[in-house]
Design a protein around this nucleic acid. Structure first.
Lengths: 276, 276
DNA sequence: CGTTTGTTTGAGGAGCGTCAATAAGTGTGG
DNA sequence: CCACACTTATTGACGCTCCTCAAACAAACG
């Protein structure tokens, strides 16, 4: 599979690569050696980015190709290794971003060092849109959960974009609204549900947002540690480990180091609803 | 004091009343018999609402009087008794609102009946701005914590407002951003801090947002029950009651039924920071 | 003056965090 | 290729917070 990808890429060249990356975006991204090669290219901005990169995405869906061309010409693209920060809480919010490939965690840190994961960002989503909310600093840190590539624009372009491009503002605020709803959802869970339900719900959320099928079940498409899950649910890695062990014995999940697959999602839904 | 208010109102008539309500808005609203009388008037829409009602408020601060006149002419005003819902979670988001006087709680309810208070809304703030985020239903319930009065407009006007009035969109999204930040703050607290700190922080937030000075300390300007506080902090009314009792013995707070005053805010800050 | 709503306080126990020790997997350098 | 450091995961023992259950009291309200 991987070998085939490489050969195709080398033979057909960059135009196919662009198509391939584009094709991957709307569905769940499946980073392979193929896309990673493209990432290297995009990293240097060598090939002009293709319009098809953005055509399917909500903020740009109503735009014509020339407009998308304008937008892309003003974008910088960059690759980030796993575990690096795209921007940090409190820093000047001078750019806004679009995740092309990979996965991000949005993280807040407390004064005494505890951190919690507020939400995850999947390919195709805008992030770091503090400028849209008239903030001059980012309210949270964006950290890559896997190797990622993102476009970015200077913050001052936000007002140009919303003014010039029909539907850009509309669609952007729509995703913002969804994100707000999601955080509220997490908040109520955190406040009312027992740890077991919260962990089950967190797993389900990741699986729904970025699950990919394997032969035995659905696996989360980016590396996750027990510690990560405890940061999402406000508990400790020990408790998460115990829960996962017990679920593995019951045949609900399978997991190895940094990899978790859900084999019986239905059962997990039952647990998250309290009928465990 | 109250008697004086009534006399003044009856003598001077409605034009002064409007001024009075306006004057109260930018600072902390101090609902008295005087404003309540006005509320009755506004309730029936009898006197045309005065432009000065909106002049000081962020979303309208950059507008000229004729523009504000236009906006007001399209508004409905209504009074709500304490404990009634302005709108409910899941209902059609057909209007957006501005709180003129009173206090609101934004509440989410879980399937099994638990509810949590996501945030409070103070006079002068927009709320129910689901239309701005392209939502067709409200994501939460808005319930009055005290007798309140609010203006509202049909959702379809939102796009008109943002298009026609300079700074309206900017300022609205700014408050939205602040609100998002506040929810994230609450989320991290909920996930990382012990109950005692969360309750202390919740008290401080209410005091900062809507505290009014009394001779012994600063009191929260709207009715709050132990149950309410437990809904904000994800605990039980019993635990809150125990905490308040203990703080009262230490001289940090004073409280009677539905009324809480903080007499030693500094001490409360220490507790919320973990140096209790 | 009875009813409703809000508050206080106690007793008991479970959930889950803390402490601790070990093991398994991963990457690095010689 | 092995030795070593480091990260991640597992599991047990212990005990403190804080929830649950229960009962009585106080304030508001018609």
């Amino acid at each position: 599979m991987i070998a085939a990808d490489i050969i195709i890429i080398l033979n057909i060249g960059t135009s196919f690569l662009r198509f391939r990356l584009f094709r991957l975006l709307p569905v769940c991204s499946n980073p392979s050696i193929g896309t990673l090669l493209l990432l290297k290219l995009a990293d240097r901005n060598l090939p002009k980015l293709d319009e098809s990169l953005l055509t399917g995405l909500p903020p740009f869906s109503r735009l014509e190709r020339p407009q998308i061309r304008e937008i892309l010409d003003q974008a910088s693209s960059r690759r980030y290794d796993e575990g690096t920060a795209v921007f940090r809480e409190g820093h000047d919010a001078d750019r806004f971003f679009l995740l092309l490939d990979g996965y991000l965690r949005v993280i807040r840190t407390t004064p005494d060092g505890d951190q919690i994961i507020v939400l995850h960002i999947s390919p195709g989503q805008l992030f770091g849109i503090a400028p849209a909310l008239q903030r001059d600093t980012y309210p949270a840190t964006a950290m890559t959960a896997a190797e990622s590539i993102a476009l970015s624009w200077p913050a001052r372009l936000w007002s140009d974009f919303t003014a010039s491009y029909d539907g850009f503002a509309t669609e952007s605020y729509k995703t913002l609204g969804q994100r707000l709803g999601q955080i509220q959802q997490t908040l109520t869970e955190m406040a009312t549900q027992a740890v077991e339900k919260r962990v089950a719900a967190a797993l389900l959320r990741m699986v729904n947002q970025s699950g990919r099928k394997t032969d035995t079940g659905i696996e989360i498409a980016f590396p996750v540690t027990r510690q990560n899950i405890s940061d999402m649910t406000g508990t400790t890695l020990h408790t998460v480990s115990r829960l996962l062990s017990s679920w593995e014995k019951q045949g609900i999940v399978e997991s190895t180091r940094k990899r978790i697959a859900v084999t019986d999602p239905h059962q997990l839904v039952l647990i998250s609803n309290g009928n465990g």
